[in-house]
Amino acid sequence: MASLSPNALLLGAFEQLGAVGWLFFKTMKNLFRRPREHQILLQQLEEIGVRSLPVVSLTAAFGGLVFGFQTYTGFHRYIGPGSEAFAGPIITLGLAKELIPILVGLMISGRVGSSMAAEIGTMKITEQIDALHSLGANPIRYLVVPRTLAAFFMLPCLVLYGDIIGILCGYFYNVVLMGVNRVMYVQNTLMYLEIWDVATGLIKSCVFGVVIAIVGCWQGMETEGGAEGVGRATTRTVVISSISILILNFFISKLLPATLKGG
């Protein structure tokens, strides 16, 4: 493959950014226009939400367990026996603000984003998207809007569900397996945890949901070149949305206030 100059690479990156930005703009423009595709929205809510429950359960459970294990070890080793009860707020904060939104975002980009790209990509190469247009249907309204809305609403639900599973597993490791004082663990957690910490994770997940859906749909609609093209689109979807999630996570964390309490 011929190597590209840095200028050409930069230009290509801006072109791609422009294309995805344009799709996002058109999606927002069509968000409230008729006809609304309620049936597809319901299907997507089920696909993104209900069908992702097993994978989110496993991810959150083991994320909670390993985070609980490392936090317990840290307190036990560096502060001393008895201090492990302070692991509660750290586990809860870390899971709700950072770990669960990121893990769920990455899992959903792999499970749902890639399937959106594959489905829409197959429709593209078999002219089904052209057929939509020929029947007077707007492909953005029919394909992209319901998927974006569904991802926007379901990601926070999944993250909230993941938070509960993860926090319970962190509790299980520390209190049930390692014998940390239950009352102190819970008391410390409730004392230091704010609703805002959980809300931060949910706000992030809304953004991640939109990113996953828009990138998946964009890659699907850009698909060219048969089965190989569909494969490429799915891979690119996972890579682009995963990297975007990690980068956006940092900036949203920096942008949102750490606490809503004064000081």
Partner: peptide, 19 residues
Amino acid sequence: LLRVTRKFGLLFQGAALFD
């Protein structure tokens, strides 16, 4: 454009049925 498009019917080479 979509309003004008509704005047048309198009038979695709590969049928392009929604699978």
